[in-house]
Design a protein around this nucleic acid. Structure first.
Lengths: 347, 347
DNA sequence: TAGGTCATGAGGCACGTACCTCATCTATGG
DNA sequence: CCATAGATGAGGTACGTGCCTCATGACCTA
């Protein structure tokens, strides 16, 4: 018979009793210490599953007199979005500390796969339980991810995934859906059809390619009256993007829409405002940053699709906690939603 | 001299040392127990502020062998949105339990202020640390909020605020911004202008009135070519809304847009599909629920603005934790963003 | 001055887990 | 049949906080 009515949370003591072993053995199994026969370990695992035991993370961290250590590795570039990601991390440091989580940020050179790999290799499992990285699909990075995982560091990917590695979790938006959403809005903005130009950063980047694919597919399926121009690559740079937009505006006096699925939005806004056609062309861009905010406010940009860096960081931290107590398998988190911002719901 | 280099988190021991008092006295101050002179209490408060002590919530809950108890009071109506709020709460029960938070939900009759007040009055501070309510601005509710606060229960408002009461926190979206956003999208959808009908639930509801105000203001300022019809009240009911939409469609053969800022979207979709004009009229509705999802998928609805119930519940729980350790002042949480959904970014 | 009240200190146990030491038991090889 | 190694049990201490008891001292009042 159990306690009268009220059900307590299961503890290690309950597991020991249910498995018919001692507390010490349960502890050895739970913390992966040696000296337990396979058969015994299985008995313990079975008992854990049966009574639904879940380690109390807080008590565990308390007992170890130690915080959960999280390391973010974020590209250090002129890219405004990466800066806002880093800001979002910084905002979470304080609140996370109250939950016994210690957060560190490493900035590495953008697009430098070896720098990222070295950064991962340098992580010590005693000083880092979980690493969150923003990375492209380079072999050296993939190897470093697997190596870190073997050393006992849970690795999670952020913004861009690394399928095929031992990464424990991915956090980011569905970029193809983002592209489709842009097309769906643009199509409704231009019921009469017209020319729409697309600018990308680099089509070698998985997220940009995904957005373009989604945009193209949705336009073709739903809005055949729209004529697509491009894509033209602006390499996420302000000046290059500005030149491209200026050129587009000159060449196409009847340009009806513009979709920049990469960065460099400062240049986009500058070019639009230098012409006198800002507001007359429907413009959709990505990531809520200083230049896109200004564009929304001035009317040069109609809609900004956003990855929601704060939400991504929040989920990354939640996933790290969940991995820390779960041990095996993927963490389950809320999916990151695509933020859609107009001037009117700017936060 | 401190520990070498590494700074530990401040504990009650540090506070006692800094204030020059014993652990017992610090404990009495921290937990509001009697038997401390005002002067001594002030010394302790000063020490807490000076060394930046923050109670370790997990250790505290552990020591009390007790979870943080949270009660949600949510209207029980046919309103789909309230159902999705309750679902969002249910989804959080498990994860919250892992953080030593125990969540209960009370459903009360919708629009029944006395039922809500009684529900609040019945809460026992020993069995409920924090209550989260969805309430209209009735005097009996306001009194019950203040009474619960006096009894030591932190009250937070959800979706609709109760300014002027002792409520500790409000969680919800900016409904005027939502209305402006709807207008901004509708205006861009109809570059040639045209008739747009507005349907509300009841203009006595603060959130509906706010949405209408925002919608009207943004249309007037930016899209003078749009002619507004209504608002017509559908009382958030399916059949009434269906009748209204059917009538609108019959009366206005040239209707270009439809904005339902209340509930009853099942009727909206049914009426649109019964006519053969679904897809030919731009439709914006509120709250991502079963009927609006179906409408988005079928093309009857173009855009759904969403309060993001999951986000609201998440923030409510985070705020409750923050209130539990802070004690005084408002909790700081992330603002809830207005979700914007098209068929293409449906989650 | 005796008796009382109040402020404060000292210390212990508990919560659930981690980690340590030491003792006991079992199986295996020589 | 004993030495040995490995598996397991028993029990302790610690983490930061809450809550309890008991002792001590200061001050007030009759």
């Amino acid at each position: 018979m159990n306690e009268i009515g009220l059900r307590r949370r299961a503890t290690v003591h309950d597991v020991a009793r249910a498995a018919g072993v001692s507390l010490a053995t349960v502890d050895r199994v739970l913390n992966g210490r040696p000296g337990v026969r396979t058969a015994t370990a299985e008995k313990v695992e079975a008992a854990i599953a049966e009574i639904g035991f879940q380690r109390d993370l807080s008590a565990s961290l308390l007992a170890r007199a130690r915080d959960l250590k999280l390391t973010f590795v974020i590209p250090d570039s002129s890219n405004e979005f990466m800066a806002s990601l880093a800001d979002a991390v910084a905002r979470r440091i304080g609140p996370a500390l109250a939950d016994r989580m210690h957060i560190e940020t490493h900035r590495i050179r953008a697009l430098d796969a070896d720098a990222l790999a070295h950064s991962l290799d340098a992580l010590d499992a005693r000083q880092c339980d979980c690493a969150v990285i923003v990375a492209g699909e380079e072999p050296s990075v993939q190897a470093a991810v697997d190596s870190a995982t073997r050393r006992g560091i849970a690795v999670m990917t952020l913004v861009s995934d690394l399928p095929g590695t031992q990464r424990r979790h991915f956090i980011g938006i569905d970029n193809e859906a983002a592209g489709r959403t842009a097309a769906s809005l643009m199509g409704r903005f231009l019921p009469a059809g017209g020319k729409v130009a697309v600018i990308a950063g680099s089509l070698h980047l998985r997220d940009h390619a995904d957005r373009l694919a989604g945009f193209r597919a949705a336009l073709a399926a739903e809005f055949p009256a729209i004529e697509l121009i491009g894509p033209i690559e602006g390499h996420d740079e302000r000046s290059e993007t500005q030149a491209i937009v200026t050129d587009l505006l000159e060449r196409h006096g009847d340009l009806a829409g513009l979709y920049n699925l990469g960065a460099g939005n400062g240049g986009l806004v500058a070019a639009l405002e230098a012409s006198n056609r800002a507001g007359a062309i429907r413009v959709i861009a990505h990531e809520l940053t200083d230049p896109t905010r200004r564009g929304l406010r001035s009317g040069a940009i109609d809609v900004v699709l956003d990855q929601n860096p704060d939400g991504e960081i929040r989920e990354a931290i939640a996933a790290a906690r969940s991995l820390a107590l779960g041990g095996n398998g993927q963490a389950l988190t809320d999916p990151i939603e695509i933020g859609i911002f107009l001037r009117d719901n700017l936060r």
